[in-house]
């Protein structure tokens, strides 16, 4: 089974999908988040082009309270 590592946890990945599709599937498509793929920021303008595939390490971040 192909897997993708989201925020440090492995998840099954049935087929390669774009970042946009990935965000839609996890309910974050319309949220203010930023995405990093294998250590590189994926700009919002490229969410429909960049493909997430087997073995990728994805970080999805938000702003939270902090000092």
């Amino acid at each position: 089974m192909n897997t993708v590592n989201f925020n440090g946890q492995d998840w099954p990945l049935p087929e390669p999908v774009t970042v946009r599709t990935m965000l839609e599937r996890i309910g974050l498509a319309d949220k203010r988040v930023a995405v990093e793929r294998n250590g590189q920021v994926v700009p919002k303008s490229r969410h429909t082009e960049v493909v997430v595939s087997d073995g990728d390490r994805i970080e999805i971040i938000v702003a939270v309270g902090g000092g």
Partner: peptide, 10 residues
């Protein structure tokens, strides 16, 4: 100031 943290997926 704000902190940057991973989302809770799902």
């Amino acid at each position: 100031t704000v902190a940057i943290r991973r989302t809770n997926i799902g």
